[in-house]
Every structure is written in C-alpha cells, then in structure tokens.
C-alpha cells in the first residue's frame, strides 16, 4: 500500500529512540498516523512542529498497518506563531480541536481546506479571531452539529435573530424567545457575518459554539473534556478585547 498527499502536522509521539509517530491531517485521507524513522534527528526537528505543512508519502504492507512516512517539509507555521501569544494560542487550539474530534482515516476535505486557510492566516492577528470563529462553525457542521442561523425556529423570521436554541442549534428572535429567554444562548451579529467583529463579540460567539462543542460534540467523543488549549485561546481573545475596549 502506498499513497502520497500533502498534510498538516497535528502532533508527534516518540517511538523508540530515533523514530516518531506522526499524526497528520490530509485532504484525501483525513487524520492519519504513521511512523517516521529518524524523526527525532536535529535536522528534522524544526520541520516537525504542530501546524507544519508536509509533503507525505505513506507506505505499509497492509492497509490497516500503521505504516511508515517519508516527509518533505513544505512550509513551517511555527515561526509565525511563536512570537505572538494570540497566534500561538490559536495554533494550539486548532491542532488540539482537530485531534479531539477527527476520527482516523475518514476524509474531511472541506474541513481540511478551511483548516489550511485558517493556519495560513496565523501571522495576521486582526483577521485571525474572526477566521477562527468561522472555522469553529465549520468544524461543528463537518462533525454533524451544524447551527441553523438562517431563520427563527419559532417565527420563521430572518431578521432580528439574537438567540440560539441550545436544544436545536437554531436561531431565535427576541419575540420568538418568549419565556425561554433565560435558557437561550446569545447570537452576536458576528455569527451572522454582520457588525464590526470586535474581540469581545467574537469571544461571546465562541462561548456559544463552545456550548455545542461541550454538550453535543464531546459526548460523541467519549465525553472527554474539551482541550484546555481552546479555553486559553478564549482567554486571550477576551483579554485583547478588554485592552482595546474604549
């Protein structure tokens, strides 16, 4: 068995003294693991940081074997992220969430494309939080928990949407909310692609997507807690929002 593809490195684990097990996300084969012999060498170390883009060749005798990779680095994203706290937290959150929810060897081409584009924006701190929010919405959709924010679940109106139902994931207007108002999640305009996309608003939107990750997605993943890296990113976005608030 053999294939060649590009991929995003999600993480590594030591395998013996000189080898690593790479965990990569590829467009055609989804999340995939394989052994990289000599992966602990000093020459390879800079290329094997999470988020790095690699050209991968995988070989195994049988399809279900773990197999061995040979890799050619394409571009590193670590240097762009390391100097900036927000970017570094973002990179950690993306990689941790992909590891958290992606099953092995199931292709997710649309999510792959979005993840690659998101990681390429790491050096642009102004765009990054909004791009990250959109990526989380896409992640939920790809995992089967898409939010339906097009019209009110109660009144079918398409304007004045200000809440999300935690039960159905559908948008709700203020008048449609009625007595349930205290049970609903906020739907800031940024989730609808409207408004200024301030950091504080993005953080509020991420609280809403976080609810669905915690209560819908995580139970499907064996009820594991959400990665701490996501919480740290949220703290950073909130802190930046407070610093820049008038």
């Amino acid at each position: 068995m053999e294939w060649r593809d590009t991929g995003i490195l999600l993480g590594t684990r030591r395998h013996g003294e000189t080898s690593l097990i790479l965990d990569v996300f590829t467009p055609e084969r989804g999340r995939h693991a394989g052994v990289l012999r000599g992966g602990t060498s000093r020459k390879m170390a800079p290329h094997l940081q999470p988020g790095g883009q690699l050209d991968l060749r995988w070989r195994a005798r049988l399809e279900d074997h773990i197999g061995a990779f040979t890799v050619e680095p394409q571009r590193s994203r670590a240097a762009a992220a390391m100097g900036d706290r927000l970017a570094l937290s973002g990179l950690n959150a993306v990689v941790a969430l992909l590891r958290f929810c992606l099953p092995e060897r199931v292709p997710h081409p649309a999510l792959y494309l979005r993840s690659e584009r998101l990681l390429d924006l790491l050096g642009q701190p102004d765009l990054w939080p909004l791009a990250y929010l959109r990526w989380e919405l896409a992640l939920l959709e790809d995992m089967g928990f898409a939010l339906d924010l097009g019209q009110c679940a109660v009144t079918a109106r398409t304007e004045g949407l200000v809440y999300v139902s935690p039960k159905s994931g559908r948008a709700v207007t203020a008048e449609g909310a009625g007595n349930w108002i205290h049970h609903l999640l906020p739907l800031p305009p940024v989730m609808l692609g409207q408004g200024e996309a301030e950091d504080s608003e993005i953080a509020q939107a991420l609280d809403t997507t976080g609810y669905f990750m915690e209560h819908r997605l995580a139970p499907q993943m064996g009820d594991k807690p959400l990665p701490e890296a996501r919480a740290r990113l949220l703290d950073r976005i909130r802190a930046r929002g407070q610093r820049t608030a008038p």
Binding site: P73, R75, S76, A79
Partner: peptide, 20 residues
C-alpha cells in the same frame, strides 16, 4: 533570541528559523 546558529549557513536553514 531565536535565529541563525553559530556556524549555520542560510542555505541549509529551514524557513521557520529564517523567519524567526
């Protein structure tokens, strides 16, 4: 600091190190 190691040749450095 992060960057070019002593005795390092730019031609052999990875793009991440050069960026840093």
């Amino acid at each position: 600091a992060q960057g070019v190691p002593i005795g390092g040749e730019l031609d052999y450095l990875d793009d991440g190190t050069i960026t840093a």
